[in-house]
Nucleic acid binder design. Structure first.
Ligand SMILES: [Mn+2]
Ligand SMILES: [Mn+2]
Ligand SMILES: [Mn+2]
Ligand SMILES: [Mn+2]
Lengths: 217, 217
DNA sequence: TAAAAAGTTTAGATTACCCTAAAAAAATAA
DNA sequence: TTATTTTTTTAGGGTAATCTAAACTTTTTA
């Protein structure tokens, strides 16, 4: 069984590696986990001994199949709990991440299966992120940043950034998962976009914001 | 903020002290927490420095007002989570304790307030144990062990022992919180009882069992 | 009430995780 | 290609929580 800390490292490595695709560097992990590179080197050796990652000195770290399975279990739990907090307890989508960071470490396969069932086997969390099933399988949707949908109509599917400040901003201007956005114009000056939400309200959003809204056409 | 371990010590001390009434000895704590007396001495000093307990060498430990407040917060969380697991997720009453031991350490006052509301502000958990409100207040019911209700009719209000084996046994013979029990006879031989459940099924239960079922007349 | 037993504390280690500072390797620039 | 900068690792320590063994205190027994 993995410790709380080991689970956090593994999950972070999984995310940084683009779902296991690429190697992850010591400093990236240190930055993401808010710790020092020396601490990362220590932990990375430990995870390598447990066969969760492959570690090559000075080169970086690659997640193994076994490590990926563990990481996906944690991510599944995180996203199921976020869904619970929003759907059942009435949390806002910007309030759930920190609590889910704690809840994801609760050890009880039965609990997770029952929670999944209670929620109706959701396929995505409140931020549009896919929830792996109990075997770690999930659908990868073809989504593009809103910034690449100039002149088009698109449906909001997910957010790339889940920070409370960004989510609060989206709520404030009326953008939500499932909203229909029409990208009316892109400003030459700063690449900001003029969009129309659900055929009604028109607003301007920054380039930064437009890159963190994921849509399908 | 208290660590996971500190919270467990404090909660255990509260329970062993009869809600703060009496002093608790080092070996009792060690036994309850499944650790060595030497470890208890260390931790007890730490909790005393934080003013959660009063510690007197070789004499034992008494919980302070501040310690009681902290302990009741943890107990509140434990019992709310147990209620959630049974009422919403369909767990059996014997399956919830170990999971609640983990969930009780999640730090989020907002989560607990919302969970409480979601559950309809329950006053007791699945084992009939009172759930303190957000100020640590709860009703202490006058309950007696079934063993002391010879010849009488009584309603099951709580269990004294929450072990899965005892709870499974109760479920199997048809005893549950709220059941009406008529104590028909007490056997001289071994103090076992003949009881009738809800005016129907008659069963014999051991002295041990009869002491762990709490009822009101 | 003195000796034995039981209970408790102290001393000294161990493990997990994290840190700073110095050394080593790799990447980049001159 | 050598020198400089950046990245990573190693060395050496610190804290929280645990343990064993030895010392000390209290309680019980004889
Ligand atoms: Mn999240
Ligand atoms: Mn999410
Ligand atoms: Mn319990
Ligand atoms: Mn309970």
């Amino acid at each position: 069984m993995l410790s709380f800390t080991e689970e956090n490292y593994l999950k972070t490595i999984y995310h940084l590696s683009d779902s296991g695709a690429k190697a992850v560097l010591t400093n990236e992990i240190a930055e993401a986990i808010q710790t020092k590179p020396a601490s990362v080197t220590d932990m990375v050796k430990k995870l390598a001994i447990k066969n969760l990652i492959a570690y090559e000195k000075y080169y970086g770290v690659k997640i193994t199949r076994q490590g990926k399975t563990e990481a996906l279990t944690i991510i599944r739990k995180h996203r199921l709990w976020e869904t619970f907090l929003v759907e059942k307890l009435g949390f806002n989508w910007g309030e759930v991440h920190d609590v889910a960071e704690q809840l994801e470490h609760i050890q009880s396969p039965l609990l997770i299966e029952k929670l999944d069932e209670f929620l109706g086997f959701p396929s995505a969390d409140p931020h549009g992120h896919p929830i792996p099933d109990k075997n770690g399988k999930f659908k990868v949707a073809r989504q593009i940043p809103l910034a690449e949908a100039i002149g088009k109509k698109a449906i909001v599917r997910a957010v790339k950034n889940s920070s409370p400040s960004f989510l609060d901003y989206l709520s404030k201007i009326g953008v939500y998962i499932g909203a229909s956005l029409h990208v009316l114009a892109k400003m030459d000056f700063d690449a900001s976009l003029e969009i129309q939400i659900d055929g009604k309200k028109k607003v301007y959003i920054s380039k930064e914001a437009s890159e963190n809204i994921l849509v399908t056409e």
